[in-house]
Amino acid sequence: MVGSDIGIDLGTANVLVYIKGKGVVLREPSVVAFDRDTNKIKAIGEDARLMLGRTPGNIVAVRPLRQGVISDYTVTEKMLRYFIQKSCGKSRFRKPRISVCVPSGVTEVEKKAVEDATYEAGAREVAIIEEPIAAAIGAGIDISKPCGNMIVDIGGGTADIAVISLGGTVVSTSIKVAGDNFDDAIVRYMRKTHNLLIGERTAEEIKIKIGSAYQRPEVVTMDVRGRNLVTGLPKTITVTSDETLEALKEITSQIVEAVHSVLEKTPPELAADVSDRGIVLTGGGSLLYGLEELIEEKTGITTMTAEEPMTAVAVGTGKFVEFLAGKRDDD
């Protein structure tokens, strides 16, 4: 039966769906817009993202996941159902087996919420997998071997850092500091330094185009439009990459700190493996310019970004079903 194995990367910022044999078939923002008056869902995914910060009073665009955890259960379930149907089509005879990944620091209750929502959305079987393991599989690392690999997965709501060996996590930490915090830091900086109020989407654009975690060889600039807080009128200013470096300093150093703390807790044999093999970055947040260099400078360990950092977790989650099936065969 086609499409019976699905991997879902249920992210704070984006949801990705991977189908065995087809690869990543869907990648949409985890945003849902609904009408407050009728409680009906207006749009899901990309259509809803375009509404963020631009809706009339009765329509609200919300993100049902906050920092990697379900904050609105019913909306999450509807969103999942929509994405599963969209990626598999309606003409399915049997329900799919779905593996969903969650940040490594979630509680049992939070895991249960994800599991229930996935069953409600139409799954036959649900496997919950931790994000760093999914990221490692997706980044092409053979996790079944007895040697240490360090993964730093920076998503929208959480950054998961783990040392993996023999298919399991040895040491890990999950911090609620990631892509969304980069955006918030930029919004705060613009308000404080330039008296300019900008929206979430503009902040994200600045982050993607000129955001820096490390000094760039050449300064890049970008024109930013927002509302002047003094006059209350729209205003355009030019922002430089050096300013974003300043704005993001605090957040990037929190991520480096977390990497450091995991390295401190790693058993010596595995720490030696990590120092040989390097640190692998995955997740959309790892695309921030200079993050590799920053981690490398602070830890002294070679750091590289996975080939497809955005889809690594989704691919890994999908392949994890196959990894489990293989394990079952061995048993």
Rank of each mutant, 00 (worst) to 15 (best):
V75F: 13
I301T: 10
K327P: 11
G7T: 08
T118A: 08
V274G: 00
S172K: 11
L10V: 10
G318S: 02
T107R: 09
G326I: 12
V230T: 13
L26Y: 02
R81W: 06
T193I: 12
T303P: 02
H260D: 13
G23F: 08
V224Q: 07
K22Q: 15
I206W: 08
A134E: 04
N149T: 05
T244P: 05
E308M: 07
N228S: 01
I154A: 07
D184E: 01
I295G: 06
D223S: 14
G57C: 07
V274K: 06
R49P: 06
T266F: 10
K327R: 14
H260V: 13
R188I: 08
V106P: 12
T173P: 07
Q85M: 12
E46P: 06
R277T: 04
Y189K: 01
I70T: 06
L233Q: 15
N39S: 14
I164E: 00
A271F: 14
G283W: 05
T266C: 10
V219L: 04
I137P: 07
K176S: 14
P146R: 01
S30W: 04
P103T: 05
V313H: 06
V15G: 00
T74Y: 13
I98Y: 02
C88Y: 04
I175P: 13
R66H: 15
A325C: 08
V187M: 03
E218C: 10
V62Q: 01
T252C: 11
V31F: 06
R277K: 07
T38F: 06
S99Y: 10
T244H: 12
S99I: 01
I279D: 08
V75D: 11
R81D: 06
A113L: 14
F83N: 00
R277H: 10
K90R: 11
V219F: 05
E308V: 14
G290E: 08
Y119M: 14
S71W: 14
P234L: 03
S172T: 05
G179W: 06
A139Y: 01
A127Y: 11
I279P: 07
V259M: 13
A213E: 00
V187T: 03
K327M: 13
F182G: 03
L294Y: 12
V163G: 11
G21K: 05
A139G: 03
S87C: 09
S165W: 08
M79G: 09
R227H: 09
V280K: 13
L288Y: 00
A159V: 01
I301M: 07
K112N: 13
